[in-house]
Each structure stands twice: as structure tokens, then as C-alpha cells.
Simulated assay, not measured.
Amino acid sequence: MRLDKFLSQQLGISRAIASREIRARLVTIDGEIVRDASFKLLPEHEVEYDGNPLAQQNGPRYFMLNKPQGYVCSTDDPDHPTVLYFLDEPAAHKLHAAGRLDIDTTGLVLMTDDGQWSHRITSPRHHCEKTYLVTLDVPLADGVAAQFAAGIMLNGEKEPTKPAQLEVITPTDVRLTISEGRYHQVKRMFAATGNHVVALHRERIGQIALDIEPGEYRPLTDEEIASVGLPPR
């Protein structure tokens, strides 16, 4: 990769500005100043910008993040802070959420720069299960679990939802597992039964379970990465 392209990606700046920084003698490779923007980087090169090391990426990246309320899952939003705020990673702007959450929904978000991997999570064809903890406005009515298992017809939809598993924890707290990702699906499913979702928290995607505190993130394990696209256990 050209040095100016690498610097542009790492710092989130234009190639023109990256070239200017290189000419300003702010970039070193293996301890030596390099002023040639077209310099070809090799994987073994150690790059520093203004005395700070810049790590070269080796392959795609995969992270889990516990999203707090008030953050959006897009990488750029003029009105709200994004989940990239929590990711202290080189070229974090190149990561995207594999399955977004609403601004007021908390919990598990998977971040990656591997488009094919995230497609296996979001594509309806793969039926990747997502599990949510749901707090309801009023106690769950009798028979709702059976309705969810049979499929719910949502307002404005032509087909009912796929069978969903509903576990009652308390009269107003339930655990719901779905295998689709329709627009505001969980909230709309409960609205169709005359209830209102007060709080929504995603705790699992496929076989990947959230195990970190709000605002924290960590790399996924090799086993977690490989589990995407596999049938549920």
C-alpha cells in the first residue's frame, strides 16, 4: 500500500493532507524519515506519525461492543454520537455494525470490516438468531408466547413474523429470541399484542453472548468469529 493512502486511512484525513504531512517530515519508517508519498509499505515496516506508532492491519477485524443508550450504530451522524467513540482502534471509521441497534436500545453490537461476515448476520437467508431482554409497560397477556411461536402479523407487513421464542422472567420482563431483523421488529411485535416496550437490551447474536460492561469492547475469539453462519446450538 502507498504511504499516503495508509496515512489517510489511519488518520481519517484526505490523501492530499496525508501527502502534506509526509512532506513535512512527520512520518518515519523503521526510524527513518520518509518524504515520498508513493513509498510502498511492506507488512514488516514500522510506521510512526509525529512520534506515534501506526499499526498496519493484518486481515479483517471483529469486535463485540456493549452499546449504552444515546449512541447510534452508524459510523457518521451529524446529530448523535456514534459507537465509534468507544473503539480505540486504528482506522476505526472503516468498521461497521453487523446488525444495528436503535439509539435507545442497549447491548451487543458486533463491529467488523468484513462485509461477507456481517452479511451472514444480517441476511434473512441465514436466520441468525438474536436474543433480547425486554421490559414491558404492562404485564404480559396470556397466550402471547403462543402467538409469538406461531408468528405475528405486523402492521403494514404482508407476511407474519417467523416463529419466535418467548421466555417469561417476570410479568413485565421477558427474554425474546427472533431470527429476523425487520424494522423495529421487537417493539412492533409487542405493540401488535397491545403492549409497549419500555427498555430493550440485546444479549446474544447467534452463538456470541455479551460478556462485557456498558461502553466496553473486546476482540472476538476465533471460535466466536467462526460461529457466525452456523446453526444455533
Rank of each mutant, 00 (worst) to 15 (best):
D173S: 05
I152E: 01
E157W: 04
V186S: 02
V186F: 02
I169R: 07
R188F: 06
M153A: 12
T177G: 07
D142P: 01
P171W: 09
G156M: 05
G143C: 04
A164M: 07
M189D: 11
V174R: 11
E159G: 06
H184P: 05
T170M: 04
G181S: 08
Y183A: 01
R175I: 10
G156V: 08
G143S: 08
A191K: 08
P139T: 14
M189H: 11
I152R: 02
P139V: 14
A141P: 11
G181N: 13
I152W: 05
V168C: 04
G151N: 07
L176S: 09
M153I: 09
G156N: 04
L166T: 03
H184A: 02
T172A: 01
D142V: 09
M189V: 13
L154P: 06
E167T: 15
A150V: 00
G151T: 09
A149D: 02
Q165A: 14
P139I: 12
I178T: 04
I178E: 01
Y183L: 03
R182T: 00
G151L: 05
E167N: 12
S179E: 08
I178Q: 01
Q185T: 15
P139S: 13
G181L: 12
A192E: 13
E167F: 08
E180Q: 10
P163S: 00
P163Q: 00
Q165G: 04
P163R: 00
R182H: 03
E159H: 14
E157I: 12
Q147L: 13
P160S: 02
K158P: 00
P171R: 11
N155P: 01
E157C: 09
H184N: 12
Q185A: 13
R182P: 00
L154A: 09
A164H: 03
L176V: 13
P171N: 14
R175Y: 03
P171V: 11
V168I: 13
K162Y: 11
F148Y: 06
H184T: 06
A141D: 15
A150H: 04
Q185W: 10
P160K: 08
A141T: 15
I178F: 00
A149Q: 04
Q147I: 11
